[in-house]
Nucleic acid binder design. Structure first.
Lengths: 254, 254
DNA sequence: CCCGGTCACTTTACGCTATAAGGAGATGGT
DNA sequence: ACCATCTCCTTATAGCGTAAAGTGACCGGG
């Protein structure tokens, strides 16, 4: 369920994103009883609570005491609504510049991490046709202010920004999927793993002999009681990956 | 549209994945005219051609000259079919061990890259509840054989494997989404970007002043005529990210 | 040889989706 | 008062996974 930017009139969507408020002309007909903002906020609330799969025009309308069709007065279609939702929540990102680029990048990545756990549906909006709203651009501009002192070339910086994004999004997706799976199946990571490794032992006898390195890979895990298995693994690999990336940047830094 | 592993009887699915063939007992009633393999192959063909969104039980049935319901003779439900499809295509991964870990990891990542472009739908199967079929496990075991000589600890190795996976999958997702968007909207990356940056200029005058570093980031691009814009960017950032990761591994290698 | 149990496969039906089409009623300008 | 205009509603369509029930083919045992 990866979704693209609005396919309707792009100018219209861009104008909404950048809020060109054209001093609403006085027209005949009933006054609207809602606003685009109210629709966006209701939609974000639905998506936060029910996930991208639960985001339907009916659900958003219902939350506002309207029918699904009433929303089409305010947005062109669902894709446009998603663009507006996407930029709306990106306003939450405010991590500001720090002197040390290493600390700055870490802070940026940590803020994104929390952000994606707060709004899992954002990860289902494709980056192949970016939304190009002001709030996401602001956040990226701030990352670049942090990255600049490392003295990288523009092409290398592009690679770093992408890799950083892939890493945060990948690890956060793992956490979100794990939570969703637990909610939908009623089975925590740990219960699931316990059951599956038993079945794996039954169906693939001699596992340790056939997969010695996979067996080795699972060793030396620090005991962890509080966080579900997969969430913990994702968090640890996020930190590890970030550390490796930062080291790699240092190698290239001027 | 991220999908999870089968929720029906997990034992049944695991038995199918590891092909415990229980010497089909002779029973009354008509002989089945298909096989699980045929169903899997038809489903993979549909998914390769139409994408995950086009993979419906009706479409698979149609390809086999059957109704959607006929498939339920061979698989428990759509989720189980997806697990079987997932492991089936992972048999294509055969990259084998090389002496140099740097070359070995690169080869592994390149093979995965091609694989995800060949089967975009694989990226929509969640890793939070892994399929645990033999073919994917084999591929990971081979990666570990390559990684082992670097002399990492198991916890660090887990972080590396995850980060590597996030990187390849993230960049490949970008390419796949870009291709899908071009197909669905009839607009290539380049046409889209041209139109959108014009609109951005209209709607956000003074862009260069407000976003000096974003403007800088887009500089020094090597001219590229053959590959669509986004695909090229994704490929370049994949290579750059891989290079940074390998450097980071070298720092930690024993 | 035929009968009864079993299974492959079909048709139908349900609730869900986005949104096109058309209608009702409110509003403001003339 | 009239009319153009706009908000919001109801209705309808094609597609999804799969539950339920029906049809007819096939096999072993009497």
């Amino acid at each position: 369920m990866v979704v693209f930017a609005a396919q309707g009139d792009p100018r219209r969507t861009m104008a909404l994103l950048w809020r060109e408020q054209g001093a609403a002309p006085v027209r005949p007909g009933p006054r609207p009883t809602l606003t685009v903002e109210a629709v966006i906020e209701a939609a974000v609330a639905v998506a936060d609570e029910e996930g991208m799969a639960g985001l339907s025009m009916r659900a958003v309308g219902e939350r506002l005491g309207r029918t699904a069709m009433a929303l089409y007065t305010y947005v062109a279609d669902k894709a446009e609504l998603l663009d507006l939702m996407y930029d709306h929540v990106h306003a939450e990102l405010t991590a500001d510049v720090v002197d040390d680029w290493r600390a700055g990048i870490t802070a940026w990545a940590e803020e994104r991490w929390e952000f994606y756990l707060r709004h899992p549906w954002v990860l289902h909006v494709s980056m192949a046709r970016p939304v190009l709203g002001p709030n996401e651009l602001d956040s990226t501009e701030r990352l670049l202010r942090v990255l600049k002192p490392a003295g990288l070339s523009a092409p290398v910086a592009r690679g770093i920004v992408s890799s950083l994004t892939y890493l945060v999004q990948g690890a956060a997706t793992m956490v979100n999927d794990s939570r969703r799976a637990a909610r939908e199946t009623g089975q925590t990571d740990d219960v699931w793993w316990y059951a599956r490794s038993a079945e794996l032992g039954d169906v693939a006898p001699g596992f340790d002999g056939r997969y010695p390195l996979l067996t080795w890979l699972e060793t030396d895990k620090e005991p962890n009681e509080t966080v579900p298995y997969m969430e913990h693994e994702a968090r640890v690999s996020f930190e590890a990956g970030l550390g490796v990336l930062l080291d790699g940047i240092a190698v290239r830094a001027g």
